[in-house]
Structures are given as C-alpha cells and as structure tokens.
C-alpha cells in the first residue's frame, strides 16, 4: 500500500511533462489556477496515477482537490 511520500513523488513525475521546465512543483502547487492545467490534463494525470497504483479515482472527489497535497491525501485514502 503506497504511502503519502511515494504518491507525491509519483505525482511530481507524472505532472512534469504537463508544465514548463522552470516550474518547481511543490505540495502547495495548485493544479488549475497555478499550473494552468486544463480539465482534460487533470483527467489525464489522474488516469496515469490510476494505472500506476491500480486504483479508480471517483469523479466525486475532484471538487475537493486544489493542490498536489490535496490530490496525494485523497489518493492515500483510495489505496
């Protein structure tokens, strides 16, 4: 069962191609307002992580996810 640190590291890896090289990703980075991800890119990110950890992320939790920390915390609950 992956822990928070493993999840946040994997999120950084998957997310890097979506953002500009000079952007430094932190747990406080906001997916849409700060990193500028479109809803399609957010879904693509989530699909990567679903495959990696063999989980399904319900759409219901997406409104509660603003930052990468929020995402990792939600994933901890699902794994």
């Amino acid at each position: 069962m992956p822990e928070y640190n493993e999840l946040i590291t994997r999120i950084y890896e998957v997310l890097q191609p979506f953002v500009k090289a000079e952007v430094e990703l932190t747990e406080d980075s906001e997916l849409v307002t700060e990193l500028g991800l479109t809803s399609l890119q957010v879904m693509s990110l989530i699909e990567h992580i679903e495959d990696d950890f063999d989980i399904s992320v319900p759409l219901n939790i997406l409104p509660d996810i603003r930052t990468l920390r929020d995402l990792a915390n939600q994933l901890v609950k699902l794994t």
């Binding site: 879904m43 699909e47 063999d54 989980i55 399904s56 992320v57 319900p58 759409l59 219901n60």
Partner: peptide, 25 residues
C-alpha cells in the same frame, strides 16, 4: 450521475480493457 449521489468512476472512451480494470477493482 452527479445528481445521483453515487460514486462515479469513468473509464477511457470505448476501452473495454479499462472498463474491466475498473470493474475488477
């Protein structure tokens, strides 16, 4: 589905293998 109150999981468009993974989980 948003109104339903159910847990909503989407699978990749027209991808039976992805549907299978979701159902197995």
């Amino acid at each position: 589905v948003r109104l339903s109150g159910a847990e909503v999981i989407r699978f990749r468009h027209s991808d039976a293998a992805d549907l299978e993974k979701r159902l197995r989980r």
